Simulated scan of single mutants.
Amino acid sequence: MGENQKLVQYQWFDQQVKAGRYPNATTLAQQFEVVTKTAQRAIDYMRDQLNAPLQYNSTRKGYFYTDNTFVLPASEPTQEEMLAILLAQNILANSAQGVISQQIKSFGRKLFGKNGLFGVTEKRFREAFSSSWNEYAPAQGQVFKTVMKALIENRLLTFIYTSPRDQQPKERTVEPHHLQHYMGSWGVIAFCHLRGEWRSFMLSRMRDVEMKSDTFVPKPRSQWKNQMEGGFGIFQGGQLILVRLHFNPFRAPWIREQIWHKDQQIEELNDGSLILSFPVCQFHEVKMRILQYGGDVVVLEPEKLKQEVLEGARVICRNYDENIF
């Protein structure tokens, strides 16, 4: 039996239940000219896999819903769609104290049902896939839920925010527009009433987060998209500057595998080295990334970034020469 035909059966049975007609395997079999065992399997599938709250009434000799708000899924998810959902659970397992992962996990258990999903048990799936992050700033679960709710409902958000730069806690009132997951950390792009401009706030630096009753009218994406796209890394919002980095033949094979920016360009050189070019808005993050590769990379341009990397390298050398630790 084709998947479309099965879906038609589920829809018909759902309609009969909602109409209070107490359908059963016999009536389903008669309607679609199938054997009763096949019809019963369809009912069992609706209950066990589609989570239909079906219960049998022995007096009426048919089924009814214990929850009349149940809505039958529009179509059965494909194997690839189900796999993507379960992989998302693994990827976000430690994000925002597992708030998102727990919700996906609940749905995932329903997908697995009693007999597993396309031949794989839930335990085997957990053992087969994993993800890991490092150097990320975890957000508190309650903070994430409050920010997400304020964003969805277009409500003002207040919180105490401490930047690692000045370490001075400041009260902020913002209009949240976009939640961004970057390298394991969560940030919210919002219009800040204190500064009168768009800012990106890391959820890990927030405390005393409160969603207000006041609402706001969401502004078009064109007004805030420069806070999340354009240049390399998380630091956005400024003028784009082209960076060109020369990687030696030893490091080049690793760099060829990587995507630093969607608009990057790679120039191959005869000696096996390469030049990687991409735009940035600020030097802070890319400078740390360059220093990570030590002597395997040289900044070709811009000159200002080259000098900042040189100064960083000099500080490292002085620290070791002076044995300050």
Rank of each mutant, 00 (worst) to 15 (best):
N94P: 00
P23F: 05
K114C: 10
W12S: 06
Q5T: 13
A88S: 11
P138W: 13
T215Y: 00
L305T: 06
Q102K: 08
L245F: 12
N57V: 08
D263R: 15
Q239T: 15
Q168P: 05
T38W: 01
F107Q: 09
K219T: 09
N319A: 08
D263V: 13
V17W: 01
E127A: 10
Y182M: 14
I241G: 03
G119W: 07
G98M: 04
Q9F: 02
E3D: 08
T69D: 02
S131W: 00
E322N: 08
M288S: 11
K145A: 15
W186N: 05
K18L: 02
E210K: 11
F216W: 00
A39H: 03
R251Q: 13
E153M: 11
R47N: 04
G294W: 05
C281R: 11
V297L: 05
Q16Y: 05
P23A: 03
S106G: 04
A29S: 05
M148E: 14
L83K: 02
R199H: 15
G187K: 13
F232N: 07
T66A: 11
Q307K: 05
T173L: 13
A39T: 03
R199C: 14
H178M: 12
L194W: 07
L245H: 11
I100P: 01
R318K: 10
Q168M: 11
F64A: 08
A39F: 04
Y320C: 02
Q49I: 00
V99N: 02
Q15C: 07
T69F: 00
Q307F: 02
E197N: 15
M148L: 15
G113V: 11
A139I: 15
V309I: 05
F112T: 10
G294K: 07
I241T: 13
E33S: 15
C317P: 00
G238F: 09
F125H: 03
Y22I: 09
D271W: 12
T158S: 09
P169V: 10
F13G: 02
E76A: 11
G2N: 08
E229Y: 07
R314M: 04
S277K: 13
F191R: 03
I275K: 09
V297R: 04
I316C: 03
T66F: 10
Q168G: 06
T121Y: 03
Q265C: 11
I266E: 04
N323P: 00
K110L: 14
P218E: 00
E80R: 10
Q142V: 14
S204I: 14
E81F: 10
S131Y: 01
Y293R: 10
Q89P: 04
E81G: 07
F159C: 12
G231H: 06
K262R: 09
Q239I: 14
I234K: 15
Q167M: 15
H261T: 13
I234D: 13
L111H: 09
Q55T: 09
M206P: 10
N323C: 10
C317L: 13
G119T: 06
W224N: 12
N68S: 08
F13V: 03
F13C: 01
T158Y: 00
Q11D: 01
D44C: 07
Q264I: 14
I152T: 10
H284V: 15
A190P: 07
E3P: 01
P23S: 03
P164V: 14
F250G: 12
N270L: 12
S75F: 12
R256K: 06
L240C: 05
L310F: 07
I160G: 05
P302Q: 02
R124S: 05
S163T: 09
K114I: 14
F325V: 10
R244A: 14
S95A: 12
L274E: 04
L240F: 05
L300D: 00
